[in-house]
Design a protein around this nucleic acid. Sequence first.
DNA 1: CGTCTGATTGGTAAAATATCCCAATATCGG
DNA 2: CCGATATTGGGATATTTTACCAATCAGACG
Lengths: 153, 153
Amino acid sequence: MPELDAIDRKILSHLQNDSRMTMQELADKVGLSVSPCHRRVRLLEERGVISRYIATVDQKALGLHVSVFISIKLARQKEEDLNRFARAISKWDEVLECYLMTGNRDYLLRVVAADLASYETFLKTKLTRLDGIASIESSFALSQVKYSIALPV
Amino acid sequence: MPELDAIDRKILSHLQNDSRMTMQELADKVGLSVSPCHRRVRLLEERGVISRYIATVDQKALGLHVSVFISIKLARQKEEDLNRFARAISKWDEVLECYLMTGNRDYLLRVVAADLASYETFLKTKLTRLDGIASIESSFALSQVKYSIALPV
DNA sequence: CGTCTGATTGGTAAAATATCCCAATATCGG
DNA sequence: CCGATATTGGGATATTTTACCAATCAGACG
């Protein structure tokens, strides 16, 4: 796997913030002409460094006013239990992020919902119906101070 | 602000997962021809429902192996203190997410770093140098079970 | 039940952009 | 300094986006 050089990193940095700019614009910004710039982008895609191109949607515009962080502890932590839990939460669109954690909590989830009522529905019809959960603790976000998808390059 | 109808939601749902498909493909998927589909996308952009188009980059490919959640409590919670904190963390690329929380912790941050050493550098040279922080508590993610940018539509 | 009005759709053509090919240039090891 | 290899740049072509306009559809109202 070849290393990323300074130009590759510039390309990633720009595309992480705006993937709609033209190759000409991107090439200008990174100091190349269109051809080599295009080839570098294609290689980054093929190597999986660039994984996808997506549109970001405004959470408020969709009426999703509630963001919740949920700490979860499982009754047992065998691999089979962890896998079962992972499969379940992967299906649910409300769960945007899920991490297996160190410390005394097993999982940390970020969940969005339209309001408290629909969050309660999510809890009652989905999360609490899972087997093997020892405890659930919800912490609500009052506001999103920063949200970025752009990794430091 | 006009409501989003079923076709708008289909458009958003597809573009959240792949913004590189052509208008022709998208139009086929939502059951329209290119013209009205294109017009709807443009309106969604103008209304701010679609906020940006971006490339997603693979965290491992960049060598960012450490994900940390940091709970922070401030010494005081006056608006001026909150704003000062928000301005500071907004500048730092390592901080991908920051939420103002309910409960006994003021902020929850998600931070990425190459390894523990560079995370320590982040703490020592940036976070702990901020004034007005009463306590910092780091929780490490062992693995990312799910990470999605696609909001439920 | 028909007709009018405004909004939405679909097709087409022009403009912008991506993509590919090949020659020119730069880089690195000896 | 020279040769081999990788990278770059320009131009031609194919694809895609975008704007325009006529046709269709939905709903209000007599």
